[in-house]
Design a protein around this nucleic acid. Structure first.
Lengths: 245, 245
DNA sequence: TTAAAATGTCTATTGATATAGACAACCATA
DNA sequence: TATGGTTGTCTATATCAATAGACATTTTAA
């Protein structure tokens, strides 16, 4: 494992949090796979150029996330290091995409509302501003760990009852099928990253300062008519996107 | 503009930094386009549920980044709000992709080295571990603002002298052309997000706590032989990726 | 010219963050 | 069973982050 560089003394983000982020990243890239343990606190303190107590705060945060477990006398064991891969293709589907990497997939409907399309949403869905759309707020789990939270909009007229269908099937694909749309394709995806809002942080069980990968996607039916626009927020330390060209 | 939610009181990331992130995001999505100004400090303090001094710290950080400029007696003006779009397709090229959105593009070669391929790099480039590869460390600017920093690996035998070629042309595409590879395609792209390291933070002129969009990409020639593997780090608040399917 | 609205500056206080040192408790193993 | 290496806990101190209040300075507009 290449030596982790010293952290920069800076303001706004606590040192222990920066160090926690570095260690989490090192774990997920397999830097400590040989031993299955994080280096001793004193070694980490030396590497990062900080006091041992600061390292302890970082490790405590990682333990809180369930990533490591400290055992007195032995060391700090790595509990979890996986990162789910989320392929983005023309046939992108959340459940199928993650499904082969996790045993149990769940989709929870947090909120449902019928509302007037904003300029932006109307543009994406090919509607006029003010036309009715259905908005779904969904939270998706893989093996009981929250992976992403999404806000989706659908043309209200065509997909009346999609909230109820999603609640039953826990899948957009199946909800579409029930409403007479057997197949659809991903038209465009925009990817950005940002800090998590308080609400997303709570739902995704993220710790302060966590990063979101944000995918704004538009799906169409096979004729190219928009059927869904969605903004999905993924916990950045739990997933990666893959784009195959 | 929809009311920004109150920030959560939490540890590890300073309140003023969270607020700075929110305001930056609001600016880049055009929330304040009507006035071209950020709301008054007292209003923001009320919206976020914090003291006015805390908001001032946030605005000071944004001013430091050149995003806003405070004028006593008038208010806080928005200076910059653009976000560059970076399309990821089979024909992804940095210079051409960003080129039509910025007037001046520059590519700076920070470092060049010949080294033995690690297991990971060898795997991506279809080489044996330990075979020679050339590593380039490059920094790319759009209109004098640093946009991304990339580490690229090339098979050393086939692309001897690519560092010098890049230094002259400031473009991977042109360097490839000079070395007898007129065309190439993007095979796969993996996208993740993470906090910036100290070195990346300095080169990309980022402020503490900033987020990186990380694209790990493999390019091949038209026969499908790998010619480049690269890890590009983008300042997340300056770019977005677009995937067209 | 005046008043309102906005940013700039100062003092003071409290709690979180970071460093420092010392030692206890526990584990593996020689 | 003794020893070295490791995590756990405690005390102490200095600095940063956040709140609070008061007032100065500047701009805009009535």
């Amino acid at each position: 494992m290449a030596g982790l560089k010293q952290v920069q003394r800076q303001t706004g983000v606590a040192l222990w949090r920066q160090i926690a982020d570095r260690i989490r990243e090192a774990i997920s890239t397999g830097a400590y796979d040989e031993t299955g343990m994080v280096p001793p606190e004193t070694v980490l303190a030396l590497q990062f150029g900080v006091n041992r107590h600061t390292v302890r705060s970082a490790l405590a945060a990682l333990a809180q996330e369930g990533i490591v477990r400290a055992v007195q006398g032995r060391g700090t064991l790595i509990e979890r290091k996986e990162r789910l891969n989320f392929p983005i293709t023309r046939r992108t589907r959340f459940t199928a995409g993650i499904g082969d990497q996790a045993r149990e997939m769940r989709g929870l409907l947090l909120d449902e509302a019928k509302e007037e399309a904003s300029t932006e949403i109307a543009g994406w869905l090919g509607l006029k501003q003010g036309e009715q759309v259905i908005r779904l707020e969904t939270l998706r789990h893989a093996d009981r760990r929250p992976v992403s939270k999404a806000t989706s909009w659908f043309p209200a007229e065509r997909f009346a009852g999609i909230g109820e269908a999603y609640r039953r099937h826990e899948s957009i694909t199946k909800a579409f099928a029930e409403l007479g749309l057997p197949d659809y394709v991903r038209a465009t995806t925009e990817v950005t990253a940002a800090h998590a809002s308080a609400a997303d942080m709570a739902d995704l069980e993220l710790t302060p300062g966590a990063i979101l990968l944000i995918a704004k996607a538009m799906n169409t039916d096979l004729e190219g008519v928009p059927v869904q626009y969605s903004i999905s927020r993924f916990a950045a330390d739990r997933v990666q996107f893959t784009i195959e060209n």
